[in-house]
Each structure stands twice: as C-alpha cells, then as structure tokens.
Amino acid sequence: MAKRLILFLLLFLISDIYFYQAVVTLFSGSSIPIFYWFVDVLIIVSIVSIIFLRQRISDIQRIASILITAMLLVFIPKLFSFPILFIEDIGRLFRGFPARSVYVSEIVVFIAVAIFLAIVFGLTRGRHLYRVRKEILYFSDLPEAFDGFTITQLSDIHSGSLSNIRGVQKGIDLANAQNSDLLLFTGDLVNNMASEMDPWIDTFTALKAPYGKYSVLGNHDYGDYIKWNNASSKEANLKRLKEIHREMGFNLLLNETVTLQKQGQRIALIGVENWGKGGFHQFGNLTQATEDIPIDSFKILMSHDPSHWDAVTVDHEKHVHLTLAGHTHGMQFGIEVFGFKWSPIQYFYKQWAGLYQRDGKFLYVNRGFGFHGLKGRVGVWPEITVLTLKRSDSATA
C-alpha cells in the first residue's frame, strides 16, 4: 500500500510539473500560471489538514469526498497529458532543448479540457447512468427445472449518498423491467447509519421478483466508519438495518442457506456476512452456512467482498457453482470500451468487475447501484446485472 501511495504521489508531481510547462507556454505573462499553483496548493493543504484534524471534524467523510472529487478533476487530465509532453521532450533532447512547441501545448491543453469535461459529466449525469449487463452461464449439473432461470443482482446501494429521487427511480424501474425470477442484493445498503435508508424504503420496496428478494450485509452496513456514543448505539443501528431489509421485503441471509424450489427440484441460495481481506471484517462463515446442504446440490452464494472467492470459496470443500459479489464499485472510475476494461481498483482486487471463472466455478462482481466517496461515476457506470442459468446440454440442443 505504501509503495502504491508513493507511486501515486510521484505521478502526481511529474504530471503537475509537465502540464505546468504547457500552461506557461500558452499563457506566459498572465495570471493563469499563478492560479494554477494556487489550486494545487489549496488541495494539498486541505488534504494535510484533514489528516491532522480528523479527530475534530465530525463530517470528515463529506469533506474527504469533496477532496477526492477535486483530486480527480485536477490530476487525471494532467496525467493523460504527460505522455505527449514527454515524447516532445525526447525530440527536444536531440535538438538542444528549444522552447516548447505552442502547437503541442495547445493539443495538450485541449485534451486536458476534454477529459475534464468528461469527468464533470460522470460526476453529474454518471451517477444514474445505469447499465444492464447480461450474462448466460452454463452448468452441467443445473436442475432441469431451473434451465433458463434468471437472476437480477443489485449491489452497493449506499443510500446515504443518494439524493436524486427521479434518478434512483430510473434504476428501480430498469431492474423491474428485466422481469427476472429472483432478485439478489449483495450488500452495502447504507454508508454508515440505518437512518440513511429511511427516505428510500418505499422506493426499494417496489423491487419485485416471483421467487423472492434476498440480501446480505456489506462492510459499510456494520457502522464501522463513524464514531458512536457507545457500543449499544452501534448494535441498535445494525438491528434497525436488519429490520429495514425485512420492511423492504428482502430476506436477509446471515451465514445461512435457503432452498429455492421449482417443479419439485431445488437449488441452494447461500448468504454470508461480510468477509474481506486487507483489514475488513471476516464475519462470513461459509462452512456454517453450508453445513446442512447436500454436497451435490447446486449452490449460489451471495458474498459482498470478491476477495472471499479467492481466499475461501474456490477451494471450499463444498462446490459453490456461482458467487455474486460487489464492494469494489469498479472504483467508480475507469475505462470500459469494446471489451477492454481498466480501473485503478484492479491493482487492489484481482476480481473487480464482471464475470470470472476458475475450476468450473463462476464469480460475478457487480459494479454497484449507488456511489460513495467520489460523488459520481466516470467510465464505470452503475450496474444492474441479469444472469441466466442454463444447462450445458441445452447449449447443443
């Protein structure tokens, strides 16, 4: 983690210095270069202040979110400009380092402005630019009655960040329009407090699925990221959050399994509490949740953090056919075009968005319905997942 932070700071510094050269080339003699450094210093001082005053600022998460947004708007356009200026420097090296080309500097500033505007779009309209992502998964041992069974997965609602009623309703309507058999929610209903969900209970109660709605807890649902007056207040918050799941019609699974039946055949739906690497709580207990399940049953697991799949699920004694997770949000920033996907989150999580397969077992990581930290999404849009289960023999029928 420390090495990655140092790398980030070096990239920030180098990109800053290079982009400043383009600014000076185009705007020398004006006040723009002074404003340039003023913004940089303001952001750096603000971050340092947050670090040292974190014990005395009650609304630290809101302020940190603003700073993250500012860093994104300032840093990313400069980072994309850096390679162009660096290539120009290679040419200048063999020409005795003449003055920078005004033409190249104009290109650099144009690209930076375009990227800046794209980020602004993501921070405003991208919050509710929902995308339906569909996958068909084939299994040789899927019970015949469940051939063609559909699942809609939502994850990471983070209701404490939501404010646009029409935008959220668009996502609810889109989820219901998929007409899936089953609806599963894989954790992080709130940012910190159960009360964040109060204005949205009726909205999310409208989600429908004929075979039911099931859910699990995510790391934010335990209330670990704010200070409580006492332990009982924190416990009461979690109790209230569990009640809200029931009020919305969700069956909250806490290291347990339910059986779904169709035409006399069954599949096992497992839900574990949050289990994550890197300092996150490991309350999830897959062994406990599956102790009464026949070893040859078809199993679907809801587990909020995808790191649980690699660390526990793949090598577990009981074969879990399909695991559904969330948690990463795709970092709410990245590039996904024509099958290519990239996000800084991939340097922290091996499985961070979309479908993964190993040893005949599938993992799907949902990019999240809501947002947290960064007040929007850039390139990694909010997701509604639709998975269709098929018997492998039906692929050749």
Rank of each mutant, 00 (worst) to 15 (best):
M1S: 11
R4A: 07
L5C: 11
L13M: 11
I14H: 13
I17Q: 12
S28T: 04
I34T: 07
F35N: 00
I47R: 12
I47H: 01
V48Y: 01
F52V: 13
R56D: 06
I57C: 03
S58C: 04
Q61N: 11
S65N: 15
I66F: 06
I66L: 07
L67W: 15
T69K: 04
T69Q: 09
V74N: 10
I76H: 03
L79S: 15
E88F: 03
D89V: 04
I90D: 06
F94R: 03
S101F: 13
V109E: 14
I111G: 04
V113S: 13
A118R: 04
L123T: 06
R133C: 01
E135Q: 07
L137H: 00
Y138G: 02
F139V: 00
F139G: 03
S140K: 11
L142C: 05
A145T: 05
D147A: 01
G148E: 00
L154Y: 03
S161Q: 06
G167C: 07
Q169K: 14
N179S: 15
D181I: 09
F185W: 08
F185T: 05
G187C: 07
G187V: 01
V190K: 13
N191A: 10
A194E: 02
D198S: 15
P199I: 08
W200D: 15
I201W: 04
D202S: 12
T203M: 07
L207F: 10
P210N: 09
K213V: 07
K213D: 15
S215R: 05
V216M: 15
V216N: 11
L217P: 11
G218I: 12
W228G: 01
N230H: 14
K234C: 10
L241N: 08
L241R: 06
I244Q: 04
H245G: 04
G249N: 07
F250P: 11
L253W: 05
L254F: 06
L260T: 07
L260V: 04
K262E: 02
I270L: 07
G271F: 03
E273M: 12
N274K: 04
K277Q: 11
L286C: 06
A289V: 11
P294M: 05
D296P: 05
K299H: 00
M302P: 01
D305K: 06
H308A: 14
W309T: 02
A311R: 15
T313W: 15
K318V: 01
L324A: 02
A325K: 01
A325G: 00
T328D: 10
F333T: 09
G334P: 02
S343F: 03
L355N: 00
R367L: 02
G370D: 08
F371T: 05
G376W: 15
R377P: 09
P382L: 14
I384A: 00
R391Q: 04
T396Y: 08
